[in-house]
């Protein structure tokens, strides 16, 4: 699942994927994979991203569970 909140937060700061990747110390492809939902980052990397974007872990990475269908 795509992480559109991360993409939006990055775009709000007018940062490119490369700039955010450089700021947190990963490759641009890794940042792209995180945004596309192809890679689940470690908590350490999540924290670095949050720190750079000025967001909390919940705001960027917490996924609300969909309510299960009532029987």
């Amino acid at each position: 699942m795509k992480n559109l909140r991360l993409k939006a937060a990055r775009a709000a700061l007018d940062m490119s994927q490369q700039q955010l990747a450089d700021a947190v110390g990963v490759s641009r492809q890794t940042m792209n994979a995180i945004e596309k939902g192809d890679y689940n980052p470690t908590i350490k990397l999540c924290r670095s991203i949050c720190r750079v974007l000025g967001k909390t872990l919940d705001e960027l990475f917490w996924e609300e569970e969909e309510p299960s269908a009532e029987v």
């Binding site: 110390g25 990963v26 490759s27 890794t30 994979a33 980052p41 350490k44």
Partner: peptide, 8 residues
């Protein structure tokens, strides 16, 4: 030496 990130 070249550095690699966690995914790499």
């Amino acid at each position: 030496s070249e550095k690699y990130d966690e995914r790499q």
